[in-house]
Simulated scan of single mutants.
Amino acid sequence: MTGKDQPVALVVGASRGIGRQVAIDLAKNGYTVVVAAKSTSDAYAKPFPPDPNSQQSTISTVEREIREAGGRATAIAVDTRDYESVQRLVNETVKIYGHLDVVIYNSGAIWWASVENTPMKRFQLMQRINPEGLYGTIQASLPHFKQNGWKGRVIVVCPPIYSRFFRGKTAYAMGKVGMSVLVKGLAMDWEREGKKDMAVTGIWPASSIESAATGQITKTDPHSVRDLRKPTIYSDAILAMLRAPVSEVNGLLDLDEDFLRRVEGVTDFSKYSVVEGAVPRRIMPAEFPDLTVAEQADEGRRTDSTKLRASKL
């Protein structure tokens, strides 16, 4: 496959941790990768490569890592809170490479606390980066997917929907579950519109993954490192989702471990443990509620606001 023929993947939130690993492994598997986030740096500063979970890891260093390993990558800075910045990112991606095939949205702001202890500014930050940033990225990408003949994939870092997820982190859960609702709703749009080559999928870790966030926990509780997995489990699951037929993954909200076990037949996950021989604790339920209802197919009279507005003009 020549560089021109390679599928192009835009990874938003790829400066460190999970996003960095996803970008690197996509490049290893034949994708041209656009590495996007806010943080940039001198890619040739020492030491190199930097700690992948540190602030020294930026889109600049990730681009260099991919290129020096023989892959194709371009780093483009973006502020996902600013829709014009997101539009520039997507348009620049297509300007450079001619097309866009995959969008992976990994950007996220985290604050786990009660409503009382979540300041309004922190709440607003999470909503702007999490659901709004995702919505803007998808909006900016849709014209280019249309140009592709409606062929493409979107992968979103968001959870299956279940009530325990809200506990102790309501403000964060409001945004993350909102992202999950977007996955479900967009998938329904594409199915209804006959876009048979488009799929949007949500992915979430079954066990905690080594990252900058979990690094803060292990500093105060060194034993907790035994409950961590390497981010390669996440990139392996995403690659498997991209290989899977549209019908299997469109609208799916799944866990990395569960998807690899069910679809790829993986039974031994020991290679993903940060501590050799450790069995990380599963943080997610074994089963999730079915969100469908008996009247699922009965939409009643569909309302389309765009048509209502047009009729008033």
Rank of each mutant, 00 (worst) to 15 (best):
V103A: 07
N130V: 00
M120G: 12
V94K: 01
R122D: 09
G98C: 06
G108V: 01
M120W: 14
V94C: 06
I129N: 00
T137F: 03
N130P: 03
Y135D: 08
Y97I: 05
I96G: 12
I110P: 05
A109I: 06
G133D: 04
L125K: 10
E132P: 08
S107G: 05
Y105E: 01
K121G: 07
E116L: 14
F123M: 09
R122Q: 13
R122H: 11
W111V: 07
N117A: 13
L100Q: 01
L125V: 10
W112D: 10
W111Q: 12
K95G: 12
V94D: 03
V115W: 11
L125T: 11
L134P: 00
W111H: 14
A113K: 12
P119A: 08
K95V: 07
S107W: 03
E116G: 14
E132Q: 15
A109S: 13
E116V: 11
V103D: 01
E116R: 15
G108S: 06
M120H: 15
K121R: 15
Q124G: 08
H99C: 09
Y135L: 14
W111I: 06
R122T: 11
R128Q: 15
H99E: 09
K95T: 12
G136M: 09
I104K: 02
W112E: 11
I104A: 05
V115E: 08
I110Q: 14
V94N: 04
R122K: 15
G108A: 05
N106E: 04
L100E: 00
V102R: 01
L134V: 02
R128K: 15
Y135T: 12
V115G: 05
T137R: 02
A113V: 06
V102I: 13
Q127V: 04
A109N: 10
